[in-house]
Nucleic acid binder design. Structure first.
Lengths: 211, 211
DNA sequence: TAGGTATTTGACTAAACAGTCAAATAAAGA
DNA sequence: TCTTTATTTGACTGTTTAGTCAAATACCTA
């Protein structure tokens, strides 16, 4: 009974996510989101109590969308080194797509938003921290498999190493956004990451890791 | 002849820098900066043509302030490993000071602002990219000394390694800001960085690198 | 077809926003 | 003391902002 649900809420989530990712939270207005999503302001506030709530919801929605991809990339059926190289491919391809479509390398939406708002809104800080932890769990899992396979030093502190990996990838995405340039990510991120992880590769193997 | 200069412009630069660093560009208003700096709005626009111009000027001013510290830390008279450990000390102490004073780990002001505005304003993107390069030059210089001293592999690509170092430190500062937490930076950043650089250290030496 | 309910609409507010300007003021030098 | 010049002031504008609300609408079910 009653009027059936529409895709309005989803359109707002998608639009907000895209605009905030491409620009910033502060540079995007509720009016701007509504216009792009073809939604009237009254509808906006029917679905979301505030602009900040939409931002948080859009982050949740994007992470929920991302998990199946991470589950695929970090499938235990894959060789653990392939998981990391596939992760970099996945990241690079998305960044390159956006650069082509919007003329702008956009970096990581979670980190960009978190950096902007963490100091003002501790809910968003906690949310992004949780996502960070969630991603590091995939890394830890893969690192343990690498130890089991004798690919890296068995004394590796996997929690620490996972944090290093996350910080390294994050830093590179941030710099790619600021420079609006994917050269480093394309040419060097994979071999640099393998070196950070502590995998021993021949120079010939390293060369193959350019995207 | 004429009325002598005052410190009004400097007060605006300092205040803008602090407020934008602690919060974000979008969350800070011209009115807010003026109030905190005890400057009337008319004076603001006497010194700066726009809010964006002030932000750029405050970044320049902060980098100019920072250079003497970097020159000291990266003095060729120091052992190159000490340069990097001192750099981490320098970063950590500033972050800890701000955490105590403002209750917030603030991260890197250049990167935070760059990440927020790079997509909207390419002048600021270019400015932050230049600062990034400037910092990496210090790293490269130290890395070359490390090669000369036989501390790291003589085939190390110093340009690449400097980029890795910068991305790694940047990523860690960003995560510290988002989590509002300096634990990783205090406990693990130094040894992780040494490992990334490729210095061979005994476990005992590594332990000493906690701040 | 009537009743119930979620959705949509557009006009509305009040505050905050960046930016303007002419006039007032303070100090140094002639 | 008068001129010159940089600085300061405060009142002003027009726009954009997030958020409100009562009424209208669409559609499902009984």
């Amino acid at each position: 009974m009653g009027r059936p649900p529409t895709n309005t809420k989803l359109r707002l989530l998608e639009t907000a996510h895209e605009l905030i990712w491409r620009n910033s939270y502060g540079a995007v207005s509720v009016d701007g989101i509504c216009e792009k999503a073809n939604v009237k302001k009254g509808s906006f506030y029917h679905y979301f109590p505030s602009k900040a709530d939409l931002a948080i919801a859009s982050i949740d929605w994007w992470m929920t969308n991302t998990i199946p991809f991470l589950d695929d990339i970090f499938s235990p059926s894959r060789h653990p080194m392939d998981r990391f190289t596939l992760l970099i491919d996945f990241i690079y391809e998305k960044q390159e797509d956006m650069r082509i479509e919007f003329g702008q390398v956009c970096g990581c939406p979670f980190i960009t938003l978190g950096s902007e708002l963490a100091a003002q809104d501790e809910i968003i800080g906690a949310k992004i921290s949780a996502i960070t932890q969630q991603k590091m769990n995939y890394y830890e899992n893969a690192l343990r498999d690498m130890i089991a396979m004798g690919l890296i030093d068995e004394n590796t502190d996997v929690k620490l190493k996972a944090e290093e990996i996350y910080a390294f990838i994050t830093g590179n995405m941030m710099l790619a956004r600021i420079k609006n340039d994917l050269k480093f990510m394309k040419k060097s991120l994979k071999p640099s990451l393998m070196n950070l992880i502590g995998v021993d590769l021949t120079p010939a193997d390293l060369k193959k890791l350019t995207i």
